[in-house]
Design a protein around this nucleic acid. Sequence first.
RNA 1: GGGUGUUUAGCUCAGUUGGUUAGAGCGCGCCGUUCACAUCGGCGAGGUCACUGGUUCGAGUCCAGUAAUACCCACCA
Length: 871
Amino acid sequence: MKEIPKTYEAGRYEDKIYELWEKSGFFNPDNLDVDKDASSYTIVMPPPNVTGVLHMGSAMMLAVEDLLIRYNRMQGKRTLWIPGTDHASIATQNRVEKDLKVEGLDRHKLGKEKFLKRVKEFALNSQKTILKQMRKMGSSCDWSRLAYTLDETRSAAVQNVFKLMYDDGLIYRGKRIVNWCPRCHSTLADDEVEYIPKKEKLYWIKYGPFTLATSRPETKLGDTAVAVHPKDKRYKKYVGKNFMIPGVLGEFEVEVVADYAVDMEFGTGVIKVTPAHDFTDNQIAQRHNLPMKQIINEEGRMMKNTGKYAGMTTAEAREAIVNDMEKIGLIDHIDENYDHNIAVCYRCGTQIEPLPSTQWFIDVNKEIPKYKKSIKELSFEAVKKGIFGRNKIKIIPERFEKNYFHWMENLRDWCISRQIWFGHRLPVWYKDEEIYVGVNPPEGEGWKQDEDTLDTWFSSGLWTFSTMAQKPADISIENNKIKIDTEDFKNFHPTNVLETMYDILFFWVARMIIMTTYSVGDIPFQDIYLHGCVRDKFGDKMSKSKPETNIDPLDVCEKYGTDAVRLSLLIGTTPGNDLNIYDEKIKNFRNFVTKLWNIYRYCLATENFTLAESIKDDDIKSLSDKWIVSELNELIAEITDDISKYKFSLAGEKLEKFTWGKFADWYIEIHKIEKNDAILGYVLDKILKLWHPFVPFVTEKIYNDFYGEKRLLMVEEWPKAGKKEKDAKTEKEFKNLKDTIAKIRNLRSSYHINPAQIIDAYTEKTENKEIIEKLARVKIIEGETPKKSIKIASLDLDIAELINIKKEIDNIEKEIKNLENAISKTEILLKNESYIKKADKDVVSLTKSRVLGYKDKLKSQQELLKNLIKL
RNA sequence: GGGUGUUUAGCUCAGUUGGUUAGAGCGCGCCGUUCACAUCGGCGAGGUCACUGGUUCGAGUCCAGUAAUACCCACCA
């Protein structure tokens, strides 16, 4: 026998095994040995940001996707997993700016060109690390198709889609309110705004026929309307009318509109509408076509059109205006302690100033001529009822569909321009008043490209189809649609499943649905599988600032092996639910891998052991053989069903139970007696295959030891369940055998009978004699009848001297009581007419057999009791 | 303010279309090197399934409400 280490030393084998896989070429579905006529299975990997290194969440994503890919590859599908990374414009630029700050630099000092060079270097470096880490996790993706959201081909996709949308009239340039930081001179994304609770003053001012409450009286100079709730009876008569309102700069005219955004309970139920300097007001203005009047500039100061207040900061202007209003009697009263959230810049803490700014937008409500539907409607239908002849996109878990619909219904025009340097430049050129939009710059002198870049989700929204192109020329506009002229697109699009964490369902997943349905007239994927957030031991988010609970996937892969890490991410978690992870948990799964390894060691130690892909009928000899084969058949059927329904945790648990609790604990123990190598080799062969998608390294390593490099487990066929139904008789007989052994063990344990002591057991005749003898450590003597003994099943154990009879009588009486309870409960149920009438027939017959089982048990317990009392 | 989850053993969590006396791992208690495995084996203790009501022959599972807790969206004059 070869010298095999007692434990599986992951670090010794993992890299070599990965190399073996990669060299085999089977990651690539173009491999000559892959059946080209087989149906395809495709996943496009959510591209990790090139902002640093892989975290536990990415490890989760890779574990789930690799499981799906390996499972389907073994199912004989033509399987493709496309890897990639995301340039993540804002996040990456911020990250590099942080580095610059440490060096006492900033991007303006460095200049755009040098800065971009620096970002590019950083991104490249970080990408290298990430790709290495993906390999370490065992990801069987096709590296020949590696993509990057900012590479040439993906850029071509971005430009083409932009042009298509522009020509369809969906992309427009317009003024919108943005979060503006007057100190940083920059727009802020919504998630870059922080809200701080603060006590402020609330001014109740007289406003023509109304009195209303406001916290920003200085914006009165930009008011163009007042709004009330449509159902507010108090103000119904004013709606639709215009009024002249007295103000500090004289009278001005406003219209009264009715809008549901107004809260009747707040203040007097009337609000002033300042479309240029408030988000809600701006929306109201859009709905009612109200004019917009800007009065605050990018410095946060009052503009020239504010007369004597021009040049003041908003705070100064507020004080001055309130003063003046008081003088002419426009102030009703002032609340001093109004609880209020103020919006500040996350970088410098300066209060942000909502300002109108020129940006590019995608119109989500406009009807697209070729589909006669808007973007919103297309994306809604794709999930609601299916579109373009496809089944509806299914979200797992289903409850997220509700969130999706809610989000989609409330979707507003998507602002796609960003004042960021790193990213895709808009394919827009200006020359004087002229605007040109196109993939290539226009001919002629004097054209200047727009300085803005695109929202990073614009390019990642194209990901499922842009990754199907190999070069820029593969992408074109044809018949008013995006055409990807490649075999990949024909073979692998739409993809089967999009797997990611639920937190980017809206940011990204929804945008892929939007961009793909619009651009190529198809869905991007059929299913969406959402995993939860990987948290630390206490259920908190992991972060590098908490090194005591933060887990680096590479560290634990090193420590416990990648297989153990994968198991800890796959078992004990359900889709959409968060999962806590910590060292001890991973260690437990490492222990399981060791168990699997030792099953293999045991097998190797048997003479001439070999893995068997199949067995003949007469290989099944004993009760135990019948039992394990029947259990295995059931397992294969269930695991296959579970994985196809995305129930990985359940599948893993069942596999674990079978491998450890049935195969190792019982069958292998019995094999030591029966030595049926054919069955042993058969079961091992099957469980290696079933386990492979979960723990690819250790299973491949074992397979490799048997077959060498000629055969790869990775591309072996997924097991098929045998035809035989589960055999109830075998099941019952084996259960009796197990129960007999367990009861004897139980007695031995209760009375501390030395494990080395062999107990005499008398019987007239017994089956499976040797198994009971060895596993229960008894000696079976046939034909004699002892005077004093304890009866277990058909065995009379000579242990009467060793046990406490009274205690045993108590125990058995308790058990008898339990059984009687169960029997009477079930019999009452069986007498219930409506139960018999309404319940499933199968359920009723099951209940009947259950009662019989109880009665059997009761009988044997009563006999045992009689027997004990005699002693 | 609006929405969506979660609540099952000391801990972390499973529990499929409602149907055995509700499960696993860890932890805990007792015993143990019979050799594939002490990263192990054997045995055991531990739960009114958050609470209240309803539907049903039958509820951990479905419905309504309550409480605790987490997250998402909006940030509002």
